[in-house]
Amino acid sequence: MNIQLSTWLQRVAAPALVIAAAALSGCAIAPSTPASLVPATVEAGTRHSQTVSVAVSGVSSHATAQRHLSDDSVAEAIATAIDKNKTFSQVIKGGAGNLRLTVALLTADYPAMGLNFTVKNEMIWELKRADGSTVWKESIRSEGSATTSEAFAGVERIRLAAERAVSNNIAQGLGKIAKLKL
């Protein structure tokens, strides 16, 4: 019986403990980088000659989103996407642009469990002139998904899905701005 128990421990229990330890060590959520939030493409349209400043709110205070996203990382991703796509002539830090773009996270729906995760969010985009008058305001809903084939750990799938939801929201928002006649 001792030989059988020893063989069982070597073949079954030891590898199971190693797998469990590896899974538990990966439970910390790695923060998203602004680069991972920048959309690959934004619908082309008008390239506005004005400068713009960008401010984001609501992300850092959301119970789940704040684990891997921040207002600053989303704002930096929006600014990078604006620069990359030439939506405006320049992004001005500190709110001194000809226009002020504010983006606020209204809702974020994260799955509790599953194999494939889809994160849904809604952000309100508002573009104002320097005098405070509103040029455009719209609520934009987006989603992003991640599968087990992309990431085995659930926390990693959540992060990937959340990044894709934000990236899709940025692409939609800037696509709509590119259609505006300023």
Results as ranks from 00 to 15, higher is better:
A40G: 07
S139L: 10
L9Y: 05
A75Q: 03
A104Y: 06
H62R: 01
A79W: 09
A28P: 04
T107D: 13
T134V: 14
K93M: 15
A65P: 03
E163R: 10
V18K: 09
A14M: 11
T7H: 12
I158A: 03
S57R: 06
S61R: 12
A44C: 07
S6D: 13
A16E: 05
A130K: 10
R67V: 06
A40E: 13
R11C: 08
A65V: 05
R11E: 07
M123P: 07
S57V: 03
R141D: 10
L9E: 02
S73N: 04
T147W: 11
L5F: 13
V155T: 10
I177N: 00
E143P: 01
D131Y: 05
A20I: 13
L106E: 15
D109M: 10
A13I: 14
Y110W: 09
A16P: 05
N168V: 00
Q172N: 05
A35I: 11
N168P: 00
W125Q: 03
P39D: 10
D131M: 03
I78E: 06
S167Y: 00
R47Q: 11
T33F: 10
E138Q: 13
V18Q: 10
G94P: 08
A161K: 00
A165C: 07
A22D: 07
A165E: 03
S133E: 11
K181M: 11
V56K: 05
P15W: 06
V52C: 09
L24H: 13
P15T: 01
